[in-house]
């Protein structure tokens, strides 16, 4: 194919998106242009190869019947009174423990950002106003909002271009910093002593944005997600939508240079954003 415009037009024709004169003009050219005919031949051969290689069964889930699904309904177990008492006692202990931790927590020294902001956190937790501003994004993950596992799945499947790592477990912190530097032309460094392991990056060519997933050594339930975007793009909509009040997650944002960092976290304060600084 001679150029990208030709390729786009060729595909638009294949997809039935050309109409009227444009379509007639293209079809006339197709009759005369050998290169275009070869292209069409190759395209058809590829489609046939795909059909041969991926023979879709007529009814892949025919054996999963409604009766079988219904049989998976689990009746609620009866709870013995002794267990009920034990649970009540455990709840009292937890509440008392939580109150103690909360007291100690509020006596902790202010973070660097809190100090910079005069004792007030420099991060804005998400509010209802965030949803109002991004209606499309809010709809994206709504059905699975409270489900961290599904949220994670929705995020990791975002397109990963060639050249960046395709598995979030492959890249270390240094690789992430290097990628950010090359992508944004801004030098980043990680806070010395940060004990987080950074996984990522995930990014897309469509949007000039990237995403970092982070795991903590203390368990899979801590699932902060850092979103890096140059503007309010699709990705940030996703994350905002996921962090609804029902989800129990918080969104913290922070601008570093021209880049907006967003952390989605189950914790009461951002734990990840401090890992990033614009180098002095």
């Amino acid at each position: 194919m001679r150029n990208r415009v030709d390729q786009r037009r060729f595909e638009a024709w294949l997809d039935g998106l050309l109409e009227g004169d444009e379509k007639a003009e293209f079809e006339l050219r197709l009759e005369e242009d050998e290169e275009l005919q070869e292209e069409l031949s190759l395209h058809r051969s590829v489609e046939e190869a795909l059909l041969r290689s991926f023979p879709v069964p007529r009814s892949p889930l025919a054996h999963l019947s409604a009766q079988e699904l219904a049989s998976l309904e689990e009746p609620l177990p009866r709870v013995p009174w002794r267990l009920t008492l034990q649970r009540a006692a455990a709840a009292v202990v937890l509440i008392a423990g939580g109150a103690l931790v909360s007291t100690l927590w509020h006596e902790r020294p202010a973070t660097v950002h809190e100090q910079a902001a005069g004792g007030r956190p420099a991060f804005d937790p998400i509010s209802a106003a965030d949803y109002a501003a991004e209606p499309a994004g809010c709809d994206l993950l709504e059905p699975l909002r409270p489900d961290l596992e599904s949220l994670y799945a929705s995020i990791i499947e975002l397109p990963v271009p060639q050249g960046t790592c395709s598995d979030q477990e492959e890249a270390g912190s240094d690789g992430l910093a290097r990628l950010l530097a090359s992508r944004y032309g801004t030098e980043f460094r990680l806070t010395p002593g940060a004990d987080r392991s950074l996984f990522g990056p995930h990014s897309s060519e469509e949007w000039p944005s990237g995403m970092v997933l982070s795991g903590y050594p203390d368990g899979p339930e801590a699932l902060p997600v850092v979103l890096i975007a140059e503007d309010d793009s699709y990705h940030s909509c996703c994350v905002h939508a996921a962090a609804s009040p029902e989800s129990g997650l918080q969104v913290y944002t922070w601008r570093v240079g021209d880049v907006l960092l967003t952390e989605l976290s189950p914790h009461d304060e951002p734990r990840f954003l401090e890992s990033f600084r614009v180098a002095p």
Binding site: F54, V56, P60, A62, A66
Partner: peptide, 28 residues
């Protein structure tokens, strides 16, 4: 959704889901 509704919806779109799974895996 009732089990019948769920199974019917699954059946209606099962070829789509199969193709999606095969596509993500790159293997049918």
């Amino acid at each position: 959704l009732s089990a019948e509704e769920f199974a019917a919806a699954l059946e209606r779109h099962s070829r789509l889901f199969w193709t999606m799974a095969a596509g993500v895996l790159g293997d049918p």
